[in-house]
């Protein structure tokens, strides 16, 4: 299994991966609570970015509404826990199923009627907005005033109910991102991944080579939606509260796709790297600018950094770094 995951990765890549794994595993013992929160959030966004990347990076399907899947995951698992006491370890299944179903509905509409490119992206925004408004008026889950999960700071970690210490959430986020990385790696190396890449590059040519474009694209949307919603389950029990205005907001959709774009679209490491640049950057800017009364300076500088990276490294950070470290392989070609 591990051999297959590493595949053709060279010695240098293996060493780099090993080092990164060691640092991430040991991190909670070395940092304070604040830094642990930043790291946990970085991993959380790495996971969401990886999930989004399955659609855009691999299959070339732009979604600007991925927050809806985060929200659906959070609300389904959260509501089932609050109302019926169903532990999230079980609640994640209906959560993922519902997200997959919504993904399938979007995919069906989009691909059946050949809505492509920007218009497909608009369709995803429309769905996200529609669902946000729906939850705003859905009183069973608190409507616009939000849903709260009873906070209960246990000293004993309880993975079944997702109650526990910050360290537990850190390792959980780490586990999620590693699992998403491994899954992406396996998918790219397999038949489905090859089909996605072909569709991303040229749909007409892909079809002429015997690829059922509709099915392959549906698989990408359904899988990406389900993966993202699992991140939503984590969100619910980590933050303990959710508001339609926040969790279905396009800001979240944008925030989760900036990581893979900055890190390197379609690459495996890009989403992780991007999240580990952007989340700490955002925190750093907050810390630096909190004493200044200039409203919006943080967002201005953050935006400027993003623009600079996109302008000077249009392929993202990872392909550039990989070249420097001698881990080079063609971009999008299973790096």
């Amino acid at each position: 299994m591990i051999g297959r995951l590493l595949g053709e990765a060279g010695t240098r890549a293996r060493i780099a991966l090993g080092l990164a794994a060691l640092v991430l595993l040991a991190a909670p013992a070395m940092v304070d609570d604040y830094l642990l929160t930043v790291l946990t959030q970085s991993l959380f966004f790495a996971y969401l970015g990886q999930s989004w990347n399955v659609m855009m990076g691999f299959a070339g399907l732009l979604s600007l509404g991925h927050a809806m899947f985060v929200g659906l995951g959070a609300y389904v698992a959260g509501a089932l826990f609050v109302h019926f006491g169903l532990p999230p370890v079980i609640g994640l299944f209906p959560a993922m199923a519902l997200a997959a179903l919504v993904g399938a509905a979007i995919g069906f509409l989009g691909f059946r009627f050949s809505i492509q490119g920007v218009y497909f992206a608009l369709l995803t925004i429309a769905f996200a907005e529609f669902i946000r408004i729906l939850f705003d008026h859905f009183t069973w889950v608190g409507g616009s005033s939000g849903l709260f999960i009873p906070v209960d700071n246990r000293t004993v970690n309880d993975l079944v109910h997702l109650r526990g210490t910050p360290e537990m959430f850190y390792y959980l986020a780490l586990g999620l991102s590693v699992a998403a990385l491994a899954l992406s790696r396996l998918l790219l190396a397999g038949r489905l991944g090859h089909r996605w890449l072909a569709i991303r590059e040229d749909q007409e040519a892909a079809q002429a080579l015997g690829i059922d474009v509709f099915r392959a694209k549906m698989a990408a949307v359904v899988l990406s939606a389900a993966m993202t919603s699992l991140g939503g389950v984590f969100y619910a029990f980590y933050f303990n509260n959710m508001f339609p205005e926040q969790i279905f907001n396009i800001n979240l959709s944008i925030e989760l796709l900036l990581g893979p774009i900055i890190g390197g679209l379609g690459t495996l490491i890009g989403p992780i790297l991007g999240a580990f640049v952007l989340t700490p950057l955002s925190e750093l800017l907050s810390a630096l600018t909190e004493r200044h009364a200039l409203i919006g300076i943080k967002h201005f500088v953050y935006g400027l950094c993003v623009v600079l990276i996109v302008v000077f490294l249009p392929g993202g950070l990872w392909p550039w770094i990989a070249r420097r470290l001698g881990l080079d392989r063609p971009p999008g070609d299973g790096t």
Partner: peptide
Amino acid sequence: VKPFAGLSVQR
């Protein structure tokens, strides 16, 4: 011609 320009020739 419609090559998959971003992929290797072999792929």
